[in-house]
Amino acid sequence: MEKFEPVIVAFCCHYCAYTAADMAGSQRLDYPPNVKIIRVPCSGKVDAIHILKAFERGADGVYVAGCLEGDCHFKNGNLKAEKQVQYLKKSLDEIGIGGDRLEMVFMSAGMGELFARKAKEMTEKIRQLGPSPVHTQLEQQAKQKAS
């Protein structure tokens, strides 16, 4: 079997995490290409449905990246996001996907290094967990269709 390359979706808030990702870019800090960023104005904008849909479509991991506590440009959107993530982790356990595949991370705009590190950590963690059951099934279905 070829090496498992997890697909990871990172919802990044515009003001901090997305800027940190740009910063990681300008500092040329390598991180795994598995991470795909979706920009949102605030991590509090990330709707539960976005996260569930990502898993439904086959994401192996998802993380929401917001500002540091107290730094949110919309007061506390990051903390709302964190609560949502904690709540959804339980749902993911129930669904059978596993709450471990979802994380909340915090960083400031200047933390390019942390962005790269979190991307690495998340990718490593998901690699260890292996493909999500949905991902596995979707691939099997695709194979069946093809054959």
């Binding site: 104005p41 904008k45 709707d47």
Partner: peptide, 8 residues
């Protein structure tokens, strides 16, 4: 301000 928390 366009944070979108309400939409979520």
């Amino acid at each position: 301000r366009g944070c979108g928390v309400c939409a979520a």
